[in-house]
């Protein structure tokens, strides 16, 4: 009786969240699976033209933008994630070595700033930093005797635009990682370092043998979540290049997988477009799953808990 009562009461507490989750999370999952297997779905009339196993996937794969989107997404992921993890790790170790708490706190605030800015606003600032004639980057390169490079302007090459984008995305990713690593470092027992000092171990040895292993659960967590986040890169591209998703004259050259989803969604009135969006989203999910799985396998061997 009492148990029954608790059961009923519990569902009352859960109801608001569960109702929302059912409408906006659970139903969409099933609907995405439905969408991806129907032909020419028309949402205005709710009609479709039979079922298909692979047609929607094939449609996405054949999209001339798809290989570009895949290449860009992979590049963003496999360059910006390792780079920002390593730089963030180094910065947090150095920050942690600052003995004066006030100075440490000041720099902590500075390094955290990118986290609390608007990705569009700061993306625009980056685009102007990389401006061929009026930007700071080319001014600096000019000091080194390098003539102005067209990074993001009209007619900029794919490689240069991608380089600029990678700089921006790496920069943007540092703040969160530094904070997590720093709080991890501050949780490491000082005894380990004392012991290392007594053994007069070298700095790099201490870093490799103590800091990294003890921080490895956090490095792992950050790497997995950053990979998942990087696969979804899109807003950063819009911040830097606008809805055009590329330098002027080379539209969509910085397109990503998520951008494919929204491109299809923008055509939602066209029969079948939503199925393409669902197919692209499921491909993204599959990619994420595979790499998360690989990450976890690697970590099983490397992470010390």
């Amino acid at each position: 009786m009492l148990e029954e009562q608790q059961n009923i009461k519990s569902w009352f507490y859960l109801a608001p969240a569960l109702i929302l989750l059912s409408i906006f999370i659970f139903y969409p999952i099933f609907n995405a699976i439905f969408l991806v297997f129907v032909k020419d779905f028309n949402y205005l009339q709710g009609t479709h033209d039979g079922f298909t196993l692979t047609e929607n996937f094939r449609y996405v794969l054949r999209d001339p933008n798809f290989s570009m989107a895949m290449l860009n997404t992979m590049l963003i992921t496999f360059v910006s994630v390792p780079l920002s993890v390593i730089i963030a790790l180094l910065i947090s170790v150095w920050l942690n070595a600052i003995p004066v708490k006030k100075i440490q706190g000041f720099f902590q605030t500075v390094f955290f700033l990118p986290y609390v800015t608007n990705a569009i606003a700061i993306g625009m600032a980056f685009a102007f930093l990389f401006n061929q004639y009026y930007g700071l980057i080319n001014w600096f390169l000019g000091l080194l005797g390098i003539s102005p490079i067209n990074w993001v302007g009209m007619g900029a090459s794919w490689g240069r635009a991608m380089f600029s984008l990678l700089v921006y995305i790496t920069w943007l990713g540092l703040a969160f990682k530094i904070m997590v690593f720093l709080s991890g470092l501050q949780g490491i027992d000082k005894q380990y370092y004392e012991a290392a000092r007594v053994d007069s171990a070298s700095r790099s040895r201490v870093f490799k043998r103590i800091t990294v292993p003890l921080l490895s659960p956090m490095i792992m967590y950050i790497t997995v979540t950053s990979f998942i986040g990087a696969f979804k890169a899109y807003t950063e591209v819009i911040g830097m290049f606008g809805e055009r998703l590329g330098p002027a004259g080379d539209d969509r050259s910085m397109i990503t997988i998520v951008a494919l989803v929204y491109d299809a969604l923008d055509r939602s009135g066209v029969p079948g477009a939503l199925s393409e969006a669902a197919a692209a989203a499921l491909i993204l999910f599959a990619v994420t799953l595979v790499f998360t799985f690989v990450n976890l396998q690697v970590s099983k061997k490397r992470v010390h808990y």
Binding site: F24, N31, L35, V261, L289
Partner: peptide, 15 residues
């Protein structure tokens, strides 16, 4: 469900 990218929800949520 936290594993699933939000894009999958967005499509249906828009509808």
């Amino acid at each position: 469900t936290m594993m699933i990218p939000g894009e999958i929800f967005v499509i249906t949520n828009f509808l």
